[in-house]
Design a protein around this nucleic acid. Structure first.
Length: 243
DNA sequence: AAGACGGGCCTGATAAGAGG
DNA sequence: CCTCTTATCAGGCCCGTCTT
């Protein structure tokens, strides 16, 4: 479990999360080198990014491991938009494994939209992170997809949520749900310091420190490092009111 | 019945626009 | 100029619907 203190800033996700992930990879290398992954699937973008260097690139460079960025929503950069034309292209994806390139206004192919599963309607957005070609990234992602979300990422999501529920007793508890439903009745946007502001809002970002005690014990065979990364990420998010 | 999917709403920081 | 409101962004979460 780690505690994130830095605020989430769109486009700067890597600066918030990559230090923890790198540390995790390094600790795995030291303690369980046999479980070091050959490639990392990252729940985020690679070169499909405002500055062409997303969290997958960041992590790949710092760990020198091949990295693939897999996003569930389109990051709207370089003229890419989730507009009607984009939706038309999605409609044209027929079978699992079908793709179309994500070409920005600059003429660069930043990634591929991938229909990961026969029955999924929304594609995944695959982009190169580090030391991997786009074609290989897409094929690898597709072959990891039992359902829409690649299995390593999906399992990380499921297991981390489960861990949080078991250890912290939220956010799936009935009390939390009730609290959430009550929150929905407040105005969509609260003024800062307004009466509706949650207690932990407005925390200053200067305390960039961390106290991590991520547990690398009991690695499961066949369980990718990325899953632990994901677990870590999710845990952080909950600890600190999300990104 | 259980598990998976996807739409819609949430957060938090920021920018832009409106109005006083 | 200042304050307030609204919109935007990525990613998390819930819950209704669908599939097995």
């Amino acid at each position: 479990m780690v505690h994130l203190k830095a605020p989430y800033v769109s486009g700067f996700l890597a600066f918030r999360e990559v230090p923890f992930l790198v540390e995790l990879v390094q600790r795995l290398q030291e303690k369980e080198p046999g479980f070091m992954p050959q490639v990392l699937l990252v729940d985020g973008n690679g070169v499909l990014h405002q500055r062409g260097f997303g969290v997958a690139c960041h992590l790949g460079v710092l760990t020198d491991l091949p990295c693939v960025g897999v996003a569930k929503k389109l990051l709207q950069v370089d003229g890419l938009e989730n507009n009607s034309l984009h939706k038309e292209k999605i409609m044209l994806l027929q079978a699992g494994g079908d793709t179309f390139p994500l070409m920005g206004n600059s003429g660069t192919v930043l990634g591929m939209a991938l229909k990961s599963h026969e029955h999924s309607t929304n594609p995944l957005y695959v982009s190169v992170g580090h030391r991997v070609s786009l074609e290989v990234a897409v094929r690898l992602t597709h072959h990891c997809c039992r359902f829409r979300i690649p299995e390593p990422i999906r399992q990380a999501d499921i297991r981390s949520r489960d861990y949080i529920r078991r250890t912290l007793g939220h956010p799936g508890s009935p009390a939390q749900r009730q609290e959430r439903s009550q929150k929905e009745q407040r105005p969509k946007v609260c003024p800062k310091d307004g009466p509706g502001a949650p207690a932990d809002q407005g925390r200053p970002p200067e305390d960039y420190g961390r106290d991590s005690s991520t547990d690398l014990k009991d690695p499961q065979p066949g369980f990718q490092e990325q899953q632990k990364d994901q677990q870590l990420e999710r845990t952080e998010h909950h600890e600190d009111s999300d990104l």
